[in-house]
Nucleic acid binder design. Sequence first.
DNA 1: AAATAGCCCAACCGCTTTCGC
DNA 2: CGCGAAAGCGGTTGGGCTATT
Length: 294
Amino acid sequence: MGRTPCCDKKDLKKGPWGPEEDEILINYIERHGHGSWRALPKLAGLRRCGKSCSLRWTNYLRPDIKRGPFTVDEEKLVIQLHAILGNRWAAIASQLPGRTDNEIKNLWNTHLKKRLLWMGLDPLIHEPFNPWGPTTAPRSSPATRHTAQWESTRLEAEAHLSKKSLFFNSPPPLLKPDPDYFLRIWNSEVGESFGKSNQEAKSECQSLISQASSSMKCGSVSGVTVDVYPNIAGSSSSTPKSNRIEDPIDASFSSCSNESEDSSDTALQLLLDFPINNDMSFLEDDNYATPPQC
DNA sequence: AAATAGCCCAACCGCTTTCGC
DNA sequence: CGCGAAAGCGGTTGGGCTATT
């Protein structure tokens, strides 16, 4: 009673793709699009499983794939995103144009994880290992920790917005409050990663929107009074310049007419600008790639 | 020069989610 | 609403390459 195979395994080729196969696949997709992956191999004349074709295209042949080694900026971004999203490689990849989930997964497993270990950081939770061994209190799961991190980040975002709201009330009124701001955060990759269904997220957004509107006046959101001057803006010295914009909030307000994708990126950028527990300056250290000598 | 170990990454496997009927 | 098919996704593997002995 097994699951039905994704394709007829008889007479199908497996293993590495040859240049001729690549050419056939590229030519077919350029002419017809991929359509149904299941049907593609037959139509294109390939002796491959549809899934294999899909993978080959997504991970290797797609024209927008960026090849070559990861830059330090990209590595930093992967680490930061991993701290927020966990092993959600596709979600992480969506923030690195031209990089595939497979590539990022490999980067993490072969390089970044080891580097964190060398730094004495637990790659699951991005925090130092407890030198005293397991505590009596039950340790929270990675998922719980990511949830907690998101909650904390969200509160900081709200605080940042509250801070900005002070400027909204000050003349000249160059900036207009955007009640969609939290909506965009919640609808962004990060919001989705929080593990809620869209319906739940949207209803939560409605609540946040109203709360955000009130925060424009009083600097208190979600029923929690927060510091309206958190050390946020100046805390991102380790954030890659190439991935940063001048001020995510300002940018989001000044680009209200942009596509939602831009908005999601902006919201995510705001999150990335927050300090995550560990200092990542080691990535720029020439010695970071070598383990500490015993 | 040969053998071995370790690293890297493309590809596969199988589970989960989404979609269409 | 339930079911099956298709696609998406993350974990794992295997083979090629390089470094070391």
